[in-house]
Design a protein around this nucleic acid. Structure first.
Lengths: 254, 254
DNA sequence: GCAAAAGTGTTAGACATACACCCATGC
DNA sequence: GCATGGGTGTATGTCTAACACTTTTGC
C-alpha cells in the first residue's frame, strides 16, 4: 500500500468515518456530489476519516473543504449509520479485489477495514462556487440530480434518502436558501428551490407573501435582466434576520 | 482489572460508545435516569459499548434493556457527540485515580481509554414499568427532574440539553405520549406532559380540541375516580392511528 | 356553600388558499 | 398579437386563540 495512505490510516480513527451528502442547486434541480472510486465503476458519497485529535465536526468541515474548496457553509450532522450490514447489497470481495488492484495488494488489511460507524453530514452549497476535487480513493466527481442517482456503494443510497428527509423536515422550522443560492436571487428562483426540495408545486403568489412575511429577505431595486419575459426583482437574505430565524426555529408553515 | 471487564472491552468497539437520555414522566415532572459511578460522587447518563458484530441500534436497545428492563419502547438517535474536548470540565486525572481505586490499577489503559465518539440516543419510557439497574461502572440509579440535574461527568449535561431540544422539536411533527404515559390516562395528564416538555402553559380547552382533532385517541367510558374534584375521563391511544401519525409526521401545531 | 378541577361551547381574528388582473418581453 | 412569465391584490373559508359557563367533588 502507498505509504502516505498507510500514514493516513494510522493517524485517524479506525472505527468511525464521515460521509457527506453535499446538496447543490443548479438549473432548477437539486443535485448531490458523487465520487467514482479508482479502478471501479462504483460511485459513492464524499467521505473521510477523523484525525485522532480532531473533533468530528472539524473533520466534517475539513472533508467538505477538501472536496469542494468551500469553507463556512451550512453543514450539519443528520444521522449516524451503524448497521452491521452496511455492505449487504454489494459484492464486497469483488469490490476489494478491484481496490487492491488500484491501491496495492495489502489495501484490504483487517486492521483498517473493520466494521465502520459512519457519521452522516449534509451540506448545502452554492453550486457555482464549488471546485469539486476527488480524494485518495476516487478519480472523478459528478453532480447528480437527486431523482437520477445510480446505485451507490455501501449504504450510500440510504444515506441520501435519510439526508433528504432530514432536509425536508428542517424546511418546516428553519429557512433555507442562504447557502444554496447565489447572493442575489429572484423570488421564482427561491420558489424553485423550495419546490425541488419539497417535491411539490407551490402557488407563486402565496409563496411570495409567505416568504416576505418571515422578514428575512431584502428586496433590491435591481431586476434580473437578460432573461426572456418580464424582469423579476432581485432579493438578498438579511443575514442577521436569517440567522435569528435559524436559531429560533420559527415555524415555516409550508 | 477484572477479567470480565477486560473481556467486555476486547469484544466491543473501542472508539465508539452509546449514551442514553432516558426520559420518564412521573408526578407531573419530566425526569431523566442517572447513574452514580463507583468510588466517586460523579453522576452520568446510562451508556455502553457496541459489540463488534452488533448494529448500533441493536446496541442501544440492548443497553436500554439492561438499565431499565424494558424492550420495544421509543428509542432513537438524536445526535452524535464527537468533540475532542469532551472531558474539558473535569479533573480527568482525579476521576481516573478514583476509578482505578474501584476497578483495579490497570483500568486506565491507553488501549481502552481512547478518545471516544458517543452516539446519543433518547428513550421515552413508562416510569412505573422501569426497574432501574446500575451497570459495571456504577452502583446507584436516580430519576432526576429535568430542572434539577446536577453537574454530570463528561459532556453529559450538554447531551441532556440537546436531547431535550430534539424532543421538543419532534413534538411539532409527531405525537408523543405513547411510551411516556400508562396505557390509560386523562386529558389533563397528557396536557401536563406536553406542558412539561415544551416548558410552557397551554390552554386546557384548546389542547383537548387539538388532541382530539388528530384522531389518535380513544375516549373510554371510565373515569379516573378516587381523586378530588370532578372525575376526568380516561383515554387510550389508538396504536394503529398513533403509529400512522408517527410515520407520516403530521404537523402538530402546538 | 365554596374552591378547585374538569367538561363543553362560542366567537373574533388571523392565516392559508384559491383565484384574477395587469405588466413586460420575445417571437 | 400572443404566449409566457412575473408583479400585485382580494375574497373566502378554515383553524387558532382567547374566553365563559356549567358540572362534579371534597371540605
Amino acid at each position: 500500500m502507498d505509504p502516505k495512505l498507510k500514514a493516513y490510516f494510522e493517524s485517524t480513527l479506525k472505527e468511525v468515518s464521515i460521509d457527506c451528502v453535499i446538496f447543490g442547486f443548479h438549473e432548477g434541480e437539486l443535485k448531490v456530489l458523487l465520487l467514482k472510486w479508482k479502478g471501479t465503476e462504483g460511485w459513492s458519497l464524499p467521505g473521510g476519516k477523523i484525525y485522532l485529535e480532531e473533533s468530528v465536526n472539524d473533520a466534517a468541515v475539513r472533508i467538505l473543504q477538501e472536496r469542494t474548496g468551500l469553507k463556512e457553509i451550512f453543514l450539519q450532522q443528520f444521522y449516524t449509520f451503524g448497521g452491521n450490514d452496511r455492505y449487504k447489497n454489494m459484492d464486497k470481495a469483488a469490490l476489494f479485489r478491484k481496490l487492491e488492484w488500484a491501491f496495492g495488494a495489502d489495501f484490504y488489511d483487517e486492521k483498517y477495514m473493520k466494521r465502520h460507524v459512519s457519521l452522516g453530514y449534509m451540506a448545502l452549497v452554492e453550486f457555482e462556487q464549488v471546485v469539486a476535487t476527488p480524494d485518495w480513493y476516487t478519480d472523478e466527481c459528478m453532480w447528480c440530480e437527486i431523482s437520477a442517482i445510480p446505485e451507490l456503494l455501501f449504504d450510500h443510497n440510504e444515506m441520501v434518502e435519510v439526508a433528504l428527509k432530514a432536509l425536508r423536515r428542517q424546511l418546516s422550522y428553519q429557512p433555507i436558501g442562504y447557502n444554496l443560492l447565489p447572493e442575489k436571487f429572484t423570488m421564482p428562483e427561491l420558489q424553485r428551490l423550495y419546490e425541488t426540495i419539497l417535491g411539490k408545486q407551490l402557488d407563486r403568489r402565496n409563496f411570495q407573501k409567505l416568504m416576505l412575511s418571515y422578514d428575512i429577505l431584502e428586496k433590491l431595486p435591481e431586476k434580473r435582466t437578460g432573461g426572456a419575459f418580464k424582469a423579476p426583482f432581485l432579493y438578498r437574505f438579511d443575514k442577521e434576520k436569517y440567522d435569528r430565524a435559524m436559531r429560533e426555529e420559527i415555524l415555516f408553515a409550508i
